[in-house]
Simulated scan of single mutants.
Amino acid sequence: MNVYKFHDEYTLAETADKLGKKALELHLIPSFVVRYFPDSRQYYIPNEQESQPLTPEQAYMHLKKLVEASGK
């Protein structure tokens, strides 16, 4: 049975933040920017000038795929 690391929008965003930090540590992405708004967050990967903002859901899926593909 899968154990999920998030249960709502806030914990999903927190999980995406942790995956972003892990991807940075593994040198899978050159940068990771999170813009915090009162009701949401926007993620920029690899940087704000070259990418569209991602929702927490999109960032989670993208970062999860990168980290899993690295095998670490």
Rank of each mutant, 00 (worst) to 15 (best):
Phe37Lys: 13
His7Ala: 11
Glu68Asp: 15
Glu14Tyr: 07
Met1Cys: 14
Asp17Ile: 09
Glu48Leu: 15
Met61Gln: 14
Val67Phe: 07
Lys64Glu: 11
Ser31Phe: 03
Ser51Glu: 08
Pro38Arg: 14
Thr55Pro: 07
Val3Asp: 12
Val3Ala: 13
Leu12Cys: 08
Ala23Trp: 01
Ser40Cys: 14
Leu54Arg: 03
Ile45Ala: 04
Gln58Met: 12
Thr15Trp: 03
Thr11Tyr: 08
Asp17Leu: 12
Lys21Glu: 14
His62Pro: 00
His7Tyr: 10
Pro30Gly: 08
Glu48Ala: 12
Glu25Ala: 04
Pro30Ala: 07
Asp17Ala: 07
Ile29Glu: 02
His27Gly: 14
Ser31Ala: 14
Ala59Gly: 01
Glu25Gln: 13
Lys18Trp: 00
His62Ala: 07
Ala23Ser: 00
Asn47Leu: 11
Asn2Asp: 13
Tyr4Cys: 10
Ala69Gly: 02
Glu9Met: 06
Ala59Asp: 10
Glu50Met: 07
Phe32Leu: 00
Ala13Cys: 02
Ser31Glu: 12
Leu54Ser: 03
Lys64Pro: 00
Leu54Cys: 06
Ala23Gln: 00
Thr55Ser: 14
Pro53Ala: 11
Ser40Glu: 13
Val67Ser: 05
Ala69Tyr: 02
Lys21Cys: 09
Pro30Phe: 04
Glu14His: 11
Leu54Ile: 09
Lys22Arg: 11
Phe32Ala: 01
Glu50Asn: 13
Phe32Asn: 02
Lys64Val: 00
Pro56Phe: 01
Met1Gln: 05
Pro53Glu: 08
Gln58Thr: 04
Val34Arg: 04
Tyr44Glu: 01
Thr55Leu: 08
Gln52Cys: 09
Gly71Asn: 10
Gly20Leu: 04
Glu68Lys: 06
Ile29Leu: 05
Glu50Val: 14
His7Asn: 03
Gln42Trp: 09
His27Lys: 15
Gln58Arg: 06
Ile45His: 03
Gln42Cys: 01
Pro53Phe: 15
Leu66Pro: 10
Leu12Thr: 08
Tyr36Leu: 11
Arg41Tyr: 05
Leu12Ala: 11
Ser51Ile: 04
Ala69Thr: 13
Asn2Leu: 14
